[in-house]
């Protein structure tokens, strides 16, 4: 299976996993920070919201590394598109287009609702695939094992409901 992006083949999983490990360990080495993306949503919220939760030092103090890191993720996506055939805005959504279908407004609504689950859920769980799944599991933390089993299980059930039951 190739990527949706320009239909290029994916790099080998072992290379990707090794690179992610190297980035995770480098981040810890240079800045004493544990990898984790989802708190970045709180960092962004803390720029405009004044609720006590967003004034915690854990949120405010981490903005200095996490916001530039998040910006880098966007740049990485741009670079990837440029290197694999050129950057262009697109609505392509792979098997969603062939099985479910729908125009831009359907996709915007679908993605916004999914995003609500991601934003609320990751913060309720205290982490996402990176913070719990990669760093937490590697650090042998029980909350991360519980969270990872929970989100993998829920994803398995939801996708099977969407693609094998409903559509």
């Amino acid at each position: 299976m190739n990527l949706i992006l320009h239909n290029v083949p994916a790099i080998h999983w072992a290379l990707a996993g090794g690179a992610i490990a190297a980035i995770t360990l480098t981040l810890l080495f240079v800045s004493n920070r544990r990898l984790g993306i989802s708190t970045g949503f709180e960092d962004v919220c803390s720029l405009v919201l004044d609720a006590p939760y967003f004034r915690r030092s854990a949120v405010v103090d981490a903005r200095g590394w996490r916001l530039p890191f998040l910006g880098g993720l966007v740049l990485g996506g741009v670079l990837s598109a440029v290197l694999s055939g050129g950057w262009a805005p697109t609505w392509d959504l792979g098997m969603f287009d062939t099985v479910i279908g729908g125009g831009p407004m359907v996709k915007v609504a679908w993605m916004f609702v999914g995003g609500l689950f991601i934003g609320f859920g990751t913060r309720l769980a205290g982490g996402c695939t990176s913070g719990h799944g990669i760093f937490g599991l590697s650090n042998l933390e029980m909350p991360s094992l519980i969270s990872t089993v929970s989100f993998m299980g829920a994803g398995l059930i939801t996708t099977n409901l969407i693609y094998r039951v409903i559509f």
């Binding site: 991601i118 859920g121 929970s150 989100f151 939801t158």
Partner: peptide, 21 residues
């Protein structure tokens, strides 16, 4: 919240095909 949040996030990951990064 590790369990309830994990479940909600898993649903969102499935719907969008994207986790936060």
């Amino acid at each position: 919240g590790n369990v309830t949040g994990g479940i909600l996030f898993g649903i969102g990951w499935s719907i969008t095909g994207m986790c936060p990064g």
